[in-house]
Computed example of a mutant assay.
Amino acid sequence: MSENSMRVPEMAGPSPILWLIAVRALALVATAFTLWLAFKVPGEEGRLIPWDKAGHFLSFYVLTLLFCLSLPRTPKGILILLMLAAGGAIEVVQGIVGRDADWKDWVADGTGIAFAVLPGWFELLRRRLIGPEPPSGLGEEEFAGDQHEARTDG
């Protein structure tokens, strides 16, 4: 049996545009759910998450991840500012409609946002600190020698 006849055919998955549409739809659903939770009249029914600050953290953590994925070309700093503004606006509106507006809720929102974006920023920093990775097929020693020659030639 030849190698080609033993090869398993690759499965074609959804195209990147379909993934983007799905993530954007999920982001909108998550936003609607978050707003519903933020503005519903508190009742006697149990909470989805017992500690209010954990709910704020988790909501904004998930929303930030979803919006970073669904808007890949938007600068992360802009998304962070928009998410922080949204969290602040929710607290202001809650105060107006008779709900409990608490600045600590906004801090929990910001913490969720930070936990969502910090791993990506740490990875970017790590890549800048270690420099370029060796091209595939080129050994570490050869790559280091090429880098040394490039620095001394200039």
Rank of each mutant, 00 (worst) to 15 (best):
A86C: 12
G120K: 01
F115G: 01
L66I: 03
L84F: 03
F122S: 00
L63D: 03
D153V: 11
W19E: 11
E140M: 13
E149S: 04
T34L: 10
L118T: 05
F57V: 02
A150P: 01
A116F: 06
F122H: 02
E149R: 14
L37Q: 13
Y61I: 10
R151A: 08
D146C: 09
M1V: 12
E123I: 06
W106V: 02
F60W: 12
V117M: 13
A32C: 08
I80L: 08
L20P: 00
P14K: 13
F122C: 07
L79A: 07
I21T: 14
A85T: 11
P50C: 02
E142W: 02
P14L: 15
L26D: 07
T74D: 00
E142I: 04
A85K: 03
I96Q: 05
A27H: 09
D102C: 03
T152L: 08
P135H: 02
D52E: 03
A144I: 05
A12W: 10
P135V: 04
F115R: 00
V23P: 00
Q147N: 02
I113M: 01
G139K: 11
E3M: 10
L66K: 08
D109T: 11
R73N: 14
G110R: 02
L71V: 01
C68K: 07
D105N: 13
I96R: 06
L48C: 01
A116L: 02
P9N: 10
L81Y: 07
F143P: 05
A22R: 06
L118Y: 05
P50A: 14
S15G: 14
V93K: 02
F33C: 08
M11E: 05
S2H: 01
G139E: 10
Q94G: 05
E140F: 10
H148C: 04
G110W: 01
N4F: 10
I17E: 13
A101N: 10
P14D: 09
V62A: 15
E3C: 09
G13M: 12
P134K: 10
T111I: 12
L118W: 09
W36T: 09
E133A: 14
W106S: 03
T152S: 12
P119G: 06
R151Q: 08
G137P: 07
F39G: 01
L58P: 04
P75F: 09
G112Y: 06
L129H: 08
L63M: 14
P134N: 06
V23G: 01
I21F: 09
F57E: 03
W106K: 00
G55H: 07
S2Q: 00
R128F: 03
L129M: 14
G95K: 15
G120H: 00
C68W: 12
N4D: 11
R7A: 14
N4I: 15
D105F: 03
S136A: 14
Q94N: 11
R151D: 04
E142M: 04
G120L: 02
P50N: 11
R24Q: 14
V8I: 13
V41W: 08
A27V: 10
F57P: 02
P16S: 08
G139D: 05
W121T: 00
F115S: 05
E91D: 04
P50E: 15
E91V: 02
I49E: 11
T31A: 12
G88W: 01
D146L: 15
Y61E: 00
W106E: 03
D102I: 04
E123H: 06
R24A: 10
I90P: 07
A86Q: 14
V117E: 01
P72G: 04
F33D: 10
V41F: 04
M83N: 09
